[in-house]
Amino acid sequence: MLDISVIIPVYNAAEFLKKSVLSALPFEEVKEIILIEDKSTDHSLEVCKRLADQYSKIKLLQHPDKENHGAAASRNLGIEKSTGNFITFLDADDYYLPNRFDAEKTIFDDPKIEGTFGAVGIEYLTEKGKQEFQSKFSDSSLTTVNYPAEGKEIFRGLLGLTPKTFGTFFHLNALTIRKSAIDQYHLRFNEVLRVHQDSDFIIKLAFHSYLKSGIIDEAIAMRGIHDDNRITKIVKYSPQYNQRQFLFWNSLYEWSQPLSLDKDIVQHFYLQKKAFELSGKKGFSKAIDFLTTVIKNPNILKMKYRFTYAHSQN
Rank of each mutant, 00 (worst) to 15 (best):
M1G: 09
L2N: 09
I7Q: 01
P9M: 11
V10R: 05
N12R: 09
E15M: 00
L17I: 02
K19W: 00
S20D: 00
E28S: 12
I36S: 03
I36G: 04
T41A: 14
D42P: 08
C48S: 08
K49D: 06
Q54C: 04
Y55Q: 00
K59I: 15
Q62H: 12
D65L: 14
D65M: 15
K66T: 07
G70V: 06
A72K: 06
N76M: 10
G78L: 06
E80K: 14
K81Q: 13
S82T: 12
S82N: 12
N85I: 04
I87A: 09
T88M: 06
D94V: 01
L97P: 04
P98Q: 03
N99V: 03
K105Q: 10
T106W: 09
D110N: 15
P111N: 10
P111G: 10
F117Y: 15
G118K: 01
E132N: 08
S138E: 12
T144R: 03
P148F: 11
A149R: 14
A149H: 10
G151N: 09
I154G: 12
F155L: 05
G157S: 07
L158G: 04
L158A: 02
G160P: 04
P163L: 03
F169K: 02
F170A: 14
H171L: 00
A174W: 03
I177N: 01
R178W: 01
K179Q: 08
S180T: 02
D183Y: 02
D183R: 04
D183M: 00
H186F: 09
V192H: 13
S199P: 00
I202A: 01
I202V: 07
I202S: 01
L205M: 02
H208A: 14
I215Y: 00
I216Y: 07
M222G: 05
I225A: 04
H226S: 04
I231C: 07
T232S: 12
K236Q: 05
S238F: 06
S238Q: 08
F246C: 03
F246R: 08
W255C: 11
L259V: 05
S260R: 11
I265G: 06
Q267P: 04
K273N: 07
K274N: 05
E277R: 10
K282F: 08
S285F: 11
K286R: 15
T292Y: 05
T293L: 15
T293R: 10
I295S: 07
I295N: 04
N297P: 11
N299C: 12
L301Q: 12
L301F: 14
S312P: 05
